[in-house]
Design a protein around this nucleic acid. Sequence first.
DNA 1: GCCAACGTTGGC
DNA 2: GCCAACGTTGGC
Length: 152
Amino acid sequence: MKYWLMKSEAAVYSIVDLKRDKKTVWDGVRNYEARNFLRAMYPGDEAFFYHSNAEPSGVAGVMRVSCAAFADPSQFKRRDIHFEPKAMPEAPIWSAVEVSFISAFPKVVALEELRKATALKNMALFRRSRLSVQPVTPAEWRTILRLAGRAA
DNA sequence: GCCAACGTTGGC
DNA sequence: GCCAACGTTGGC
């Protein structure tokens, strides 16, 4: 099983929305490296839900990858902001996964806190700016759970 | 709202 | 294939 971190603007879709919906299609990723990480996901993998552009930004909870990567439906929708004219149903360009709610932390583990943790200094989060889907190592995963007040 | 980081596009 | 222009992400 692998671990991941996935970013969403909190005002657009937050952990509260995922808790309500139970599961959602994580679509709209339009960066090749992030897409390749989506394609590397398997059902049962777990991911941190990261709130970006939030007050504070940080890790807000945990979700499970509940369906492996498939063609992102939004790339075919002409009126969708994520429409991709070059994508054909028989040759999709972008991928999505389905994720399911596991838990919301009582308190968001803020970016500032993540920065202070020396065990996290090599996180992709800090080394690769703007990457919205990224791997998390088991050690990083445990560290963040501990910061969240959850047993690792 | 500003702006740094950085991926993408398109002219040449 | 280079690189300037441009657009987006995301912290602050």
